[in-house]
Design a protein around this nucleic acid. Structure first.
Lengths: 140, 140
DNA sequence: TATTGTTATACTCTATAACTATA
DNA sequence: TATAGTTATAGAGTATAACAATA
């Protein structure tokens, strides 16, 4: 194959973009964007400080501030000052936040169905396996 | 699966982003970005007008102007006024442009190797097949 | 002095709209 | 009037750097 568009990297890029766009469209009515979902998932595992979130998500701290401002406006998270170290804010999911996270997961699987629904169960299983293997080195 | 990160849409989004980023890193020394590659590939099929390019690539005309300015600075394309309709510019690949396109294709396949090289030939063939099927509805 | 979180600012990428020159 | 291309401008989204509070 001597063309860029014939490469898997290019095709994965395109498909990934389509997947993200489809997901973003469905999230929009909830007031969420895809990037918020990483925060919701992390916080489902328990409260965290903001810098901890920034490092784990590999985004700059100011982006975390921005995302949390938005999630707080949706009453999805709560910031509470750490009494032990008053510089830290402990960020936690509210019941509404847990609900939003589940709804987002439902929408993500709707996109799966739209994007890949025509594939057979066997093919889907193969894709999931291959993606898991390919994705692993980038997961950090 | 009740998590966003468990969806194929989310994983495809992440992997696609990684693929595009890896490709962009390799293109950078050439003065190219991934978006330029679509132009180079289209023009490899023959000269076109700019609005035609914009419609086919599904980007706004001003973006085409910008990309062509950059490609022209690299001596990869040439704009020639259409003598029949003096409003139109016919955009064509130069020999340098053809060379750049081949080099970009080589780099794209380097990313394939880095991203997916640990997969077996059989698995790669399966992924290519599945991607082709999944990608088709979005190809327009 | 170092760290947590915040704000102000700049940069990249893309889209919209106004403009020119031709038709 | 409509079309091809251009320019100017504005909007997302993200990153950098300076800052206030606390350690």
């Amino acid at each position: 194959m001597t063309s860029v568009s014939g490469s898997l990297a290019f095709q994965l890029g395109k498909l990934g973009q389509a997947a993200t766009a489809g997901f973003a469209d469905r999230l929009a009515p909830l007031g969420l964007r895809p990037r918020h979902c990483g925060v919701l998932e992390l916080l489902a595992g328990g409260g965290r400080g903001q810098l901890d979130l920034a490092r784990t998500l590999d985004v700059t701290p100011s982006v975390v501030v921005d995302m949390l401002d938005e999630l707080e406006a949706l009453h999805a998270v709560r910031r509470t000052r750490d009494t032990g170290d008053r510089r830290r804010q402990i960020v936690e999911l509210t019941p509404e936040g847990r609900e939003l996270r589940l709804e987002a997961a439902r929408l993500a699987h709707e996109v799966d169905a739209e994007l890949l629904g025509h594939l057979g169960a066997e093919q889907l299983a193969t894709l999931r396996l291959l993606l898991g293997q390919a994705y692993a080195p980038w997961r950090r």
